[in-house]
């Protein structure tokens, strides 16, 4: 066995184990669920707007370190952004905030980002 390889960036593991903004909003303006049919992961992202600004955001669901870690990180990134700024976020922006997630697992890491785009595209 290899000597202590870094499987994931420790920050992402920390987010997975101690997720931020996990839960449900009582009266969200947008609520979108994304699923990955290959593994069954599911993330629901809920957003409340104050004008054009994201005032509250929460997520819930189940999944792997990357899908849950990414969701936790993403909710922190978009808090306080306006809708236009949030829509401009790319996968690379998310990856930059996640350290170096497994490149093979884009489907996992982008689950919550896809939910965000779907939620706000109707705004």
């Amino acid at each position: 066995m290899k000597d202590k390889p870094e499987i994931y960036n420790q920050d992402v593991v920390h987010h997975y184990q101690n997720p931020h903004n996990k839960g449900k909003l009582s009266d969200p303006d947008f609520s979108v669920t994304e699923e990955n049919p290959k593994c069954g992961d599911r993330v629901t992202l809920q957003i409340k707007l104050d004008g054009a600004e994201i005032s509250e955001v929460k997520f819930h669901g189940h999944g792997c370190v990357l899908s849950i870690g990414a969701a936790s990180i993403l909710t922190q990134m978009i808090q306080g952004l306006n809708v236009r700024e949030a829509l401009e976020l790319t996968f690379d922006d998310l990856v930059e905030n996640m350290g170096n997630p497994a490149k093979m697992r884009k489907d996992c890491a982008s689950l919550s980002l896809n939910a965000l785009k779907k939620a706000l595209s109707g705004w």
Binding site: I7, P37, K38, G40, C64, V65, L66
Partner: peptide
């Protein structure tokens, strides 16, 4: 440990290739 994370870990730790997910059999899951 989520199966996907396990698969990634086994690969990183000792180049062990396993499958993780729903194996194209969602009704059974």
């Amino acid at each position: 440990v989520h199966p996907h994370d396990l698969a990634t870990a086994l690969d990183s730790l000792d180049n062990i290739a396993i499958r993780a997910g729903l194996h194209c059999a969602q009704p059974l899951h």
